[in-house]
């Protein structure tokens, strides 16, 4: 888009958090706040998921036992230990979306993609997720594809939603 500042910033914040490399050498008494989560995000961005080798690498870099890293990685919904698709389709399942028909939206997406929520299409193009509220409740029901929220959806608009992704 033309010159929308927020869009540039969104890209930047995706591209350059305190990555894995940035962390090595910083291990002193304690890690900085949020460092473990940021490292896991960084790893997932690079590989598309959290691989066993990646987690072992983080464990040695951060000086934290692998078991502990694994505990953190499996605790949070944002992390995946299996390969995910190139595009993340997230159906909001907040209360407002539930009241306004999120279930039908989800079922239609499951039908279009041929997978259940939590699964990835065989061509690894899309992963389908249920998320708890993306905070666009006034436009319910909403679906977020790769961070972009689409609101006021109707079931028959779903096929159109999936066009344009490679």
């Amino acid at each position: 888009m033309s010159d929308l500042k927020s869009d540039d910033l969104l890209k930047k914040s995706e591209a350059n958090p305190a990555g894995v490399q940035g962390l090595s050498g910083e291990v002193s008494e304690r890690l900085p706040g949020g460092a473990v989560l940021e490292a896991l995000f960084s790893l997932q961005r690079r590989e598309g998921y959290l691989s066993e080798e990646g987690l072992s690498y983080l464990s040695s870099q951060l000086g934290i036992p692998l078991s502990q890293i694994y505990g953190v990685a499996t605790f949070y919904n944002a992390f995946s230990l299996v390969p995910r698709g190139r595009h993340q389709v997230c159906v909001c399942y907040g209360t407002a979306c539930h009241v306004r028909g999120a279930r039908s939206i989800l079922e239609r997406l499951e039908r279009e993609l041929g997978v259940k929520s939590g699964e990835t299409t065989p061509d690894r193009k899309f992963s389908l997720h249920l998320v708890r509220c993306v905070g666009s409740c006034s436009l319910a029901p909403v679906v977020m594809v790769d961070g972009r929220v689409r609101g006021r959806l109707k079931v028959d608009q779903i096929p159109q939603l999936l066009i344009g992704y490679e």
Partner: peptide, 16 residues
């Protein structure tokens, strides 16, 4: 208005 809710309704395309 280009907060997330505005964008979800198409405000980014309005801006363009």
């Amino acid at each position: 208005g280009l907060a997330t809710c505005g964008r979800a309704a198409g405000a980014d395309r309005v801006y363009e």
